[in-house]
Design a binder for these strands. Structure first.
Lengths: 255, 255
DNA sequence: AAAGCAGTGTACGTTACCGTACTGAATTTG
DNA sequence: CAAATTCAGTACGGTAACGTACACTGCTTT
């Protein structure tokens, strides 16, 4: 459990390009929710990047140099203990932003943010972000709202990690990932899942076996496929349902 | 584990009075951090209350009618699962505010907030709070900062609850409570601690026994006394240390 | 084709904690 | 003062998960 993040130490090859945003549609919901004026102001400071898997965006106790508006793929926010064990506390996909402490001017990260499924993002330097906040009230507002949503997610995951079995948590994880990614199969190893769930790799194998035998998923060498979503929802604990219910309720608010 | 919150259902006797703030000093750090103008504007909308223990401030999935600036005592933020089990995800004392979703306009609570140690607070209605936000940028700023601090707390607690033993978590809890309360003994039953830690009451007894035998605490019918804080810090896992380190680091920021 | 390796399956003794239940001591109530 | 109640301590069988280790199986590399 201790060594597997070793190769993540170096912030591996981020292919960055210059495209905010030439015609291509933007999937990120925060950027997408900005009024035109702010969107243009923000776009001027963004840098488009493609990230591979297992790339560290922010290191624990390290400086937060950039904020990331995830556009596709998936990033995990992990807490890493002094003994080197890790647990995922939150997942961020195209609905969100990585680097939340920046929105109140805190510039060190209490967590490790690591890309989980390869994808793309728009990144902005901490400095530029700060100056954008002066002119873009809606940007700030949306980020603060996302921050509350994210806190809700941590809250739910915290309880779930304490109270429920590995197979239930694994089911929840698949559901949450699918929500943020779309599609029904993604590439990830059990080794990595074990870091997310804060268990042994062997426990993930067993738990995946349970879900597999029930016909909900198939798993083959780093590729999981969700075969029966409804089944997974039954296999998961109530945490998934109450999380989505609350998110829906909040998002349904007039504004 | 299921029944113990029964009597909390009714929001028991909140003795409320009218004192924002006639001479008495205000301990709450958020209120205390406001510039005079804002402080007066806010004070006009506050109501002073004394709360007993085990009083529900916000119910899970319920409306958030009031925000509470805790002035003394302690409130816990709990997640309660559909099976009725509960885990504490955060603690709020005089440094904080209960009702965080309100600061972005969300008015239902994803968690249960319950008073843990009797004390006092200034409460403000959701409606008044909303209107205050228009004129009090510093209030909003301090609340947003607190929100990030609180998220950090959840993050740390989430990992701790997953990875560490009951006795370690119990030690952490005592330390966190003492930080927020001052003093070295507080009134609380093992039954309640079990809800906080998300374990059986019997496990709390055992864990408390460990800390007692080591000479760190004494426990007698609902009253714990911290006898050796340094010892407790060693008995706790690294979570407590890294939480306080990060908080200190953030709070030390120029602004 | 052989070798190497990453990823998965499985096993086994150990540990922490669970659910439950009963006891006794301290405190409150009648 | 006796009775009732609240709270802490303890016990016991059961279970989920742990640490560790090893074998198997597809891919990749040479």
């Amino acid at each position: 459990m201790t060594r597997a993040f070793a190769r993540l130490g170096n912030t591996t090859s981020l292919k960055s390009g210059i495209h905010p945003f030439p015609g291509q549609p933007v999937h990120n919901l925060i950027l997408g929710g900005l009024p035109r004026r702010e969107r243009e102001a923000v776009a001027a400071k963004l840098q488009f990047i493609e990230f591979p898997t297992h790339c560290v965006l922010n290191e624990i106790a390290g400086p937060i140099r950039y904020g990331y508006f995830i556009d596709s793929g998936l990033a995990s926010i992990l807490n890493v203990t002094s003994e080197g064990k890790s647990v995922e506390v939150g997942l961020t996909g195209k609905e969100g932003f990585v680097g939340l402490p920046l929105i109140v001017g805190f510039d060190t990260s209490p967590t490790r943010a690591v890309t989980q499924i390869a994808g793309t993002a728009f990144r902005v330097s901490a400095r530029d972000l700060k100056s954008l906040f002066r002119d873009c009230p809606q940007l700030l507002k949306l980020l603060h709202r996302y921050s509350q949503e994210f806190a809700l997610q941590i809250t739910q995951v915290a309880a779930c990690n304490r109270l429920h079995r590995v197979d239930q948590r694994l089911a929840r994880w698949f559901l949450m990932s699918q929500d943020r990614l779309g599609g029904s199969s993604f590439l990830l190893t059990q080794e990595f899942l074990s870091h997310m769930l804060g268990t042994r790799r062997a426990s993930v194998t067993t738990a995946a076996g349970v879900l597999h035998k029930a016909g909900f998923i198939t798993y083959r060498r780093g590729k999981v496929t969700i075969e029966d979503r409804a089944g997974l929802e039954k296999a998961a604990c109530g945490c998934y349902a109450s999380l989505t219910r609350q998110l829906k309720q909040w998002r349904g608010k007039p504004r």
